[in-house]
Structures are given as structure tokens and as C-alpha cells.
């Protein structure tokens, strides 16, 4: 799959933002006033910034309101609805903390659930697609949720929890990669089943229908950088988990160290998301004799 910058930015930032909102919502000793403002400003900037970036790849962003209508069947629609609800509820909760200095904890809990629900719906947009076997697993939701919760813990300064969650996220990531590498072959879809000719012999593509790449090939068959995959995986894990864990374990949570840890983590998640798309093989590739 073509790794579109807008979607990588969206899933990376929104994941961290909603993860943060979830932690803020369930905090039993929330900060109030300006302290609260700082946290919520960052969380909303990440969540909303990510959502806005996702509209950049739309052909008709001006019709985006229509995307809220099909929540009965569409995970993309559910994500939109869930995101708006989460932001509204958490907005009200934050307003209470910042302006009234009061925590309406039930609101916080609902907001936290909706925030994680948003991350889950995002993950399901990908996990539902049988056409991309690497994504088509409940592990994809686990991956998105652990990343969001780990990132959120890091961003809200919950150092001990963050350390544990970052290690957990690395484990989920490694398992997801391992399963993903054989997912396409395991599914059993090949040029034989794609053409129905498989039972008569070996099928191979002789000629494409067109001489240069079309929308399908540009969108679904992305092979650039495949040879660097293993290196990028190591880089991603290092930045996402190893660097923040080492920094926090050695130096504790002073502001400067925390900032470096957060930036490193986000760069690592972005690398992971780049791989998420770049490595994903779509069944359309089969018709072109590639993956």
C-alpha cells in the first residue's frame, strides 16, 4: 500500500492524542487550572491535528460531514462519530477542570472510553480489510491500542506505567510483524484463485492491461524500500520504545528528558506506521503478477 504522509501523520498523532485523553480522563488526582490547560492543549492539538491531516487525502473534503452518516456499517464513519463524541465529552471535562477547578469524574471516564473507542475504530478501518491479509487480524487493533495507551502514558508523565507499556507495545509489534510476514501466503489467495485457472497449471502474468502504472498500481503495489524493512523495524523499535525506556530509567522524568523521550517515541511510531502501509500487500497486486 502506498504510504500516504497524511494517513501516517493522522494515525501517529491522533493515536497519541486520544491515548493521552484516555489517561487524563481517568486521572483520580487531576491537575486543574493552567496545569490542566497545558495537558489538554497538547492532547487536543495531537488528536485534532491528526484528524485534520487525514482529510488531506480526500478527493472532496468539503463533503466530509456526510462521512458521519453510515455508522451502521462503516468503521470509517464510526471513527468520525466516535472522535467527535470523545472530543466533545473530554472538552467539557477539561473545561470543568480548567475554569471551575472541578472534576466531573463520570464525564472523564466516559470520555476516556470514547477516546480509546476512537483508536479502536481507527484500527478496525484497517483490520476489517480481507484484501490486505497483513492487516486483517484482531492483532491490528491490539497494536493500535497498546501504542496509543503507551504513548498516552508517556505524554501524561506516568513514568512507571509508561515503561511497562512501552515494553508491552514492543512485544505486540514484534508479534504483529511476525504474523504479518506470512499472512498473505496463509490466506491462500494467488493468481490461481484470482483467475480461476489455478487448477489447470501454473498461471503467470504475461502482459499488464496498460503500459504505465495506473491508480491501482500506485495505490496498492508499493515495493520501494522493501529491502530496508528489517533495518527500519529495528530503528522503529529503538525510537519508539528503547530510547524512551532507557532515558526515563536512567534520568527519571525531568522536563527536558521527557521531551526527548516523547519526540523519539513519536518518531518511532511514525516509522512503524510507514512500515504498516509500505509493507502491506493488497490482493490487487496479484492480478499484476506482483505483490
Amino acid at each position: 500500500m502506498h504510504p500516504a504522509a497524511s494517513v501516517i501523520v493522522f494515525t501517529t498523532l491522533s493515536g497519541a492524542g486520544f491515548g493521552m485523553l484516555a489517561w487524563l480522563g481517568i486521572d483520580s488526582t487531576p491537575s486543574t487550572g493552567w496545569g490542566a490547560f497545558g495537558y489538554y492543549f497538547v492532547a487536543f492539538a495531537l488528536a485534532v491535528g491528526g484528524l485534520l491531516s487525514s482529510t488531506f487525502h480526500l478527493g472532496h473534503p468539503e463533503r466530509a460531514m456526510k462521512a458521519f452518516t453510515q455508522w451502521r456499517t462503516s468503521w470509517l464513519s464510526r471513527e468520525g462519530v466516535c472522535a467527535v463524541l470523545a472530543l466533545t465529552v473530554m472538552g467539557l471535562y477539561a473545561a470543568g477542570l480548567i475554569f471551575l477547578g472541578e472534576a466531573l469524574s463520570i464525564l472523564g471516564w466516559i470520555g476516556a472510553i470514547l477516546s480509546l473507542g476512537t483508536v479502536y475504530t481507527t484500527s478496525m478501518i484497517y483490520a476489517q480489510l480481507a484484501t490486505i491479509p497483513r492487516w486483517n487480524t484482531p492483532l491490528t487493533s491490539l497494536l493500535y491500542l497498546t501504542f496509543a495507551i503507551a504513548g498516552g502514558a508517556l505524554l501524561t508523565g506516568k513514568v512507571t506505567i509508561a515503561l511497562v507499556l512501552l515494553v508491552a507495545a514492543s512485544f505486540v509489534q514484534v508479534i504483529w510483524w511476525k504474523k504479518g510476514d506470512t499472512a498473505f501466503a496463509d490466506r491462500g489467495t494467488n493468481l490461481g484463485t484470482a483467475t480461476g485457472l489455478g487448477d489447470r497449471g501454473e498461471v503467470r502474468s504475461l502482459a499488464h492491461p496498460h503500459t504505465s502504472p495506473n491508480y491501482l498500481m500506485r495505490e496498492f503495489i508499493y515495493t520501494v524500500g522493501r529491502k530496508h524493512v528489517q533495518k527500519l523495524r529495528v530503528i522503529s523499535l529503538t525510537l519508539m520504545a528503547a530510547v524512551p525506556v532507557v532515558l526515563l530509567a536512567l534520568f527519571g522524568a525531568n522536563h527536558f528528558i521527557a521531551l526527548i523521550a516523547v519526540l523519539s517515541h513519536i518518531a518511532g511510531v511514525a516509522t512503524s506506521r510507514w512500515l504498516f502501509f509500505a509493507e502491506a500487500e493488497h490482493t490487487v497486486g496479484i492480478y499484476y503478477g506482483m505483490r
Binding site: 462521512a67 478501518i125 491508480y215 493488497h282
Partner: peptide, 10 residues
């Protein structure tokens, strides 16, 4: 249609 492309992915 907002041109999100998800149907082509599916």
C-alpha cells in the same frame, strides 16, 4: 462521494 478511497481498498 468524498473520495476517501476506502471502497477501492476493500
Amino acid at each position: 462521494c468524498i473520495g476517501c478511497g476506502l471502497c477501492a481498498w476493500a
